[in-house]
Design a protein around this nucleic acid. Sequence first.
DNA 1: GCGAGCATGGCAACCATCCGGGATGTGGCC
DNA 2: GGCCACATCCCGGATGGTTGCCATGCTCGC
Lengths: 351, 351
Amino acid sequence: MATIRDVAKLAGVSVATVSNSVNDPGRVSEQLRNRVLKAIETLNYAPRAAARSLRKQSSGLLGLIVADITNPFFTELVQAVEGIASQQGFSVLLCNSDEDPAREEKHLQVLRSQWVDGIILATTGDVSLSRSSLLSQIRVPVVLVDRAFDGLGLDAVVLDNRLAAHQATEHLIRRGHRRIGLLSGPTSVTTGADRLAGYREALLASQIRFDPALVLEAGFREQQAYDATVALMRLPQPPTAVFAANNLMAIGMMRALSVLGLRCPDDVSVISIDDFAWANVFRPKLTTVAQPVRQMGEMAVQLLTDRIHGHRSGTGSTHMLESHLVIRESCAAPVQAAQSEATRAEPAPSR
Amino acid sequence: MATIRDVAKLAGVSVATVSNSVNDPGRVSEQLRNRVLKAIETLNYAPRAAARSLRKQSSGLLGLIVADITNPFFTELVQAVEGIASQQGFSVLLCNSDEDPAREEKHLQVLRSQWVDGIILATTGDVSLSRSSLLSQIRVPVVLVDRAFDGLGLDAVVLDNRLAAHQATEHLIRRGHRRIGLLSGPTSVTTGADRLAGYREALLASQIRFDPALVLEAGFREQQAYDATVALMRLPQPPTAVFAANNLMAIGMMRALSVLGLRCPDDVSVISIDDFAWANVFRPKLTTVAQPVRQMGEMAVQLLTDRIHGHRSGTGSTHMLESHLVIRESCAAPVQAAQSEATRAEPAPSR
DNA sequence: GCGAGCATGGCAACCATCCGGGATGTGGCC
DNA sequence: GGCCACATCCCGGATGGTTGCCATGCTCGC
């Protein structure tokens, strides 16, 4: 309620001096500064961010758009981003697109008019849509996280998705699996396409023929993964192991296996990309390929603030981080040939 | 970059007409409005939120402070709040206090200077601290969520924590348990104290003597719950069932049981407050008392916007929502007396 | 021809910041 | 001892973009 004028009046100085006392203490004598600060405290004055941003042409706000806030991957990302941003004096405007490109678009509009100093974007839309919308508000620095796309020259922080998928697939192969199912994300986005590529690479490296019937696209969502898993396990020759390309799909897969009455890892081995806090609490403890989520968040904020402060300019680049395998209990050697014969004899698994 | 002036010039109208075209279409003729809108599109103009809030004395921002963004309860709350707020034209400034009252205090300062229109606060500090800090910036409407405190006359949306704890404890009693451990939250906050009270009420109702040795405070955190569970199970007469007063403590408890080599529900039954998406995916599927999280978020936003729009005034009230029991697989009848004798004979459980 | 009503424009206010200028005081040098 | 140069402090005023209020001017109808 109190304005800078009220403070100035109470302290018996000019408005400018009040401002200087706060923002550039060197310009004001110690004594006067104390008098001003005391007045500020008395009136419980706080500068109005709106007026300040109007004058400074910068808001001290960072926009963060994630695809699904309930996904633990993004939750952890949000935590990291908020923490670092806050340390650097920025507040975070959180937007959740809920996997809806239209909502993402709307959020971008809002962020633009809020005049945020920068945007961290985990895009949900396909590339073309995002491109057109982003082009319209190119003024503010943007850093992509998780999913990248070329063509706009933006900075991006992503996982080495090929490597991650390779690690997961290779782990299953080492345990003796040859028929490995894949719950894939949409190949229209880099995380989907690259993880599929890594899976194929790993198969190739072990001279296992790629079987398209074992790859089902499940849109990174739980329910679709559930359906896909049921379909996979009802194949004439079901896979002995399944690799889910993200955490949500791993959940759907586990639920399906449970309903189908299949035990893990006894009947089928399971691995996924994305580690999360609860993966090691229940049975089976999930073997996963973990992403350095926190590091991704920190790096994204750093790239962004570097650009905001002008320490970084020109075309952006893609920063690729490495995943690592976390071995727990959900992967075992495949069931014996005899048993798989039995399974094959009865197409619909018991429940 | 384009200002309202540029638009006015291009459309050949005054600045005021541009503003009216956007905000009060009735005041401008159809034809002129179209000309203006076209100019806006051509120049890709967006009003600057800072200037607008300066003029309107309101920012269109809602502050949301949660205690721990990685806790699924708060995650879901954030999702609900963001969704509804966005629908109502508000953006959400997300703050994560990470269970640190000092950070919460800092976030409050920031929100105050951002001149947010309202604050939804899931406070982490004890009552006295929050009280003093909140008093200093009483100008903006505040709605408490999850944890309430009296004295400031603020609106609050909370769970009927007594009922929830009663439901959980009673369920265990019905299954035949008489020695029921409690991993309690800190009794300095309402959620901690009320859940303890509900536990005691349920015991009393079934004429089971309250045994203080079976109640350990674990601060709503995972690691402390882990330690507490180990301690509980090493008692001369360990409980046959344990009730964790929130989700994080349930996780810690499950981890401890796993390390101790105790099977659930065979060796010990388990129940907790807070349901979450993964509770029914792994083994054992957790029996929980679910909170209507989404509803809590919606109600909090509604109360807040009602106040912001002046539809609501005067002293706030506490709104209590009911939990419901979700029965899954983690509660069974207690082990036979013979077996508990055996357990008692060997104080340190095998691992 | 006059009045009513509507479309449009002008102007001030919102509040913090920053640039440049002005005022005061101090020290040194002739 | 007096004057000038300089440093230290402080203040005035302009700036930014938008909106609400009020005035103006125009047109249409009676």
